[in-house]
Design a protein around this nucleic acid. Structure first.
Lengths: 167, 167
DNA sequence: TTTTGATATTTTAGACATGGATATATCTAT
DNA sequence: ATAGATATATCCATGTCTAAAATATCAAAA
């Protein structure tokens, strides 16, 4: 249909609402779910353990890598900038929950590790954290959760391809 | 079953890894997808339009509500705190992209609206933004996107129920 | 060796973001 | 009418977070 008139503005809008809007709605819904869960977790971590979400996340990465991680590794895995990791690590070091060790291989790099106290403290929090997550997904049956998990793998692949190509 | 031994730590860990971990992995994958897309959008908005994601998001809310929105409405829809909205709005007002009008109904409240320039500026950015989103989901077919959209509705309902009950 | 370029981290400046506290206005039930 | 509870928005302290510049190291070529 359509008159292919002179108005570029109208064409763009038509194209957008008829073809693109579904993807946009999908993205906005994804974002809404993530924010809902993330905000809940954030405030419970603060209320019950007096810790911030970024610090918890950094400790979680270290817990999974008992050998420790370089700052750059943390940055990549947490998908945040290096400057950010520096600040969070400084805080955790001051609290005695992690340590910076000099890398034997590379004098530019540090190896960040959990301290014994950090590990002990993290395990307690992680246990509660997992329970909260389970509660949040309790309204889904197993089949739905598995389907979602698989679809998110497709999203990840699709978005990765798009970001590496364009950037 | 189970010996209900003295070690609480061991019991907790077993319970966690055998039963809870799948939900945790689901959540972490969700988070990874969101961060991937969000970081991409954020840097493109900055690079191509010199705007930040929070400001863009606030303008997007106003675009959808031509009558304007109260600060509290913005806070609810963007899922951020009121103090945060105050700051972002201040910035946008300083740039002449939005205005604060006194509410005729309620002298406690402001009505925030896009200025004509704000609307013009937003439409250009929104058009590009939608194209980026389409690119990011290009690796999924329509059936997958619809399935995902529906599953996310279930997630949202599940998480909403959990957060309102516990909080 | 010295230069060159890539890598690893920190530093800096500015913008977000939360939670709590405050100030003001409105509503409700007497 | 009026006290008490609620609602609206702002201010403040603290803590991320990014982008860009600065610092230091490494690795390899000229």
């Amino acid at each position: 249909m359509s008159k292919k008139t002179a108005s570029a503005g109208a064409d763009t809008e038509t194209r957008a609402t008829s073809e693109h809007a579904p993807d946009l709605r999908l993205w906005l819904r994804t974002l809404a779910c993530t924010n809902l869960i993330e905000n809940h977790i954030r405030s419970r971590l603060r209320a019950e353990f007096g810790i911030t979400l970024p610090r918890f996340d950094l400790m979680a990465q270290l817990e999974r890598s008992p050998l420790g991680l370089k700052m750059g590794e943390l940055s990549k895995r947490m998908m945040v900038t290096g400057g950010n990791v520096t600040g969070i690590t400084d805080q955790l070091v001051a609290e005695g929950l992690v340590v910076r060790e000099d890398s034997p291989k590379d004098r530019r790099a540090y190896i960040v590790k959990l301290t014994p106290e950090g590990r002990r403290s993290f395990r307690k929090m992680a246990d509660a954290h997992e329970n909260w997550i389970v509660e949040l997904y309790a309204g889904m049956d197993e089949k739905q959760r598995n389907q979602l998990y698989d679809l998110l793998a497709v999203v990840k692949a699709s978005a990765s391809a798009a970001t590496t190509k364009k950037k």
